[in-house]
């Protein structure tokens, strides 16, 4: 899965490199036009492309598999008989899913930076505000963005964890999690549900760009972290309630 994620920036970079005319500003995914000028933008463009579907997809697979996958293999009962402890198992599984979110995001960012550096010139990076920062600081910003995206995915991970405790069919849990992430984004795009928007876990997903302003706009980072923490707490508690009372019959 990480390999597939790593392939996205490569695909973007190669496509831009091979196309005869450079992308026009304002067309295609944001930042695409900057790629030819500065390879470091491949990471950011790739993230923009991955966030709506590809990252939630992989996170859904991983989070949906956490408990249901173990139950399906029959390993869950052995872990519990060890005893691994149900709460501890949930925490470890959530930590694992969170680690995957980080790994997935870093994979996209790192692979984007590498392929970008290989195919395009690298130099000082222009921020959204028009200010320019050094390559070193831009790497720092990329890591910040990776952190932001990782945090963004934690709510979805918690939802996946909860769904995963409901079933012994991992594919069902994965599908349900992914479907939810799509539904959240669809709702987020409908003005009729405006009152709901700030409550959707996908609400701040694309606002990582606020880290690319000068000075950094931290508000969305804080709001996002708070929202994701709320989701993690609610669905973590639900997963706890479900899992500690669950009969392990698989």
């Amino acid at each position: 899965m990480l390999l597939a994620l790593a392939a996205v920036p490569v695909l973007i970079a190669v496509a831009v490199r091979l196309s005869s005319s450079p992308p026009e500003p304002g067309r295609g995914p944001p930042f695409l036009d900057r790629v030819t000028q500065n390879g470091l933008f491949v990471s950011i463009t790739a993230l923009v492309v991955c966030i709506p579907l590809f990252l939630p997809l992989t996170v859904g697979v991983v989070a949906g598999d956490t408990i249901a996958g173990e139950a399906n293999l029959g390993t869950l009962r052995y872990l519990l008989v060890v005893p691994a402890g149900r709460v501890r198992l949930l925490l470890v599984k959530f930590a694992g899913a969170a680690a995957f979110c980080l790994a997935a995001t870093l994979t996209v960012v790192a692979s984007g930076a590498l392929i970008g550096a290989a195919l395009f010139p690298v130099g000082p990076v222009t921020l959204l505000s028009g200010d320019t920062i050094s390559v070193g600081e831009s790497i720092l910003r990329s890591l910040l963005v990776a952190g932001y995206v990782t945090v963004s995915l934690l709510g979805l991970s918690a939802i996946g964890l909860f769904i995963s405790t409901l079933t012994v069919v991992p594919v069902g849990a994965m599908a349900a999690t992914i479907v939810l992430s799509v539904v959240a984004q669809v709702l987020g795009a409908l003005p009729q549900f405006e009152w709901l928007h700030p409550w959707l876990f996908s609400h701040y997903w694309l606002d990582f760009a606020d880290l690319l302003r000068q000075p950094i706009a931290w508000t969305s980072f804080g709001d996002n972290a708070l929202l994701q923490a709320g989701y993690a707490a609610v669905f973590g508690a639900l997963a706890y309630g479900r899992f500690v009372t669950k009969d392990i019959l698989s």
Partner: peptide, 19 residues
């Protein structure tokens, strides 16, 4: 459970392992 199970070895309804 936490005190008891470490002292118990079990095979429940066939093995379950990561293939």
């Amino acid at each position: 459970l936490k005190d008891v199970l470490p002292r118990v070895g079990a095979l429940v309804e066939g093995p379950g392992f990561y293939p």
